[in-house]
Amino acid sequence: MQALTNKSIAVNRSPMTFWERMYLINIIKGMMITFSHMFKKQPTVRYPEQKREFSPVFRGLHVLNRDEEGRENCTACGLCAVACPAEAITMEAAERLEGEEHLYKEEKYAAKYEINMLRCIFCGLCEEACPKDAIYLSETFAPANYTRKGFIYDKNDLLIPNTLTDANALAKAKGVEA
């Protein structure tokens, strides 16, 4: 059969010579290879001290966004939940009352919003489905936790801090995460 590329190397099936059968020489050759690796640069990223730059498309922990007036963008339309292949997102909607206009952008909002991080596969489909720019996958890991309960993230955990009411809130939140 004709080879498709010139990359293939035919296996040498000729009987081994005496020196090859001695095996010792080849062992020494192999040991030289491993020895040379002692002086190679380690590609290891020493994680807590060194952090690798996330790629711009990294999909990490979710955040719920606010608009420029500090109001929640989410209207509990359920598109993220229906897009979610892992069925990790659940929510419960409520109607905005008079006087709550500074809290919620639209007349409907998510009274409860939960992401089960145990189920989430961080595919980012919720982010793509969202018509209100409300949910984003940030460049943060979901931190480890001692209990399974700790992975049920509710709205308080997901909402980004309101920088209009507390100017340092974002820095504080980032400081906790760092």
């Binding site: 020895f35 690796h37 640069k41 290891t44 020493r46």
Partner: peptide, 10 residues
């Protein structure tokens, strides 16, 4: 670890 280009227990 060193023979395998990694830091090992540290």
């Amino acid at each position: 670890a060193i023979l395998q280009d990694r830091p090992g227990p540290n």
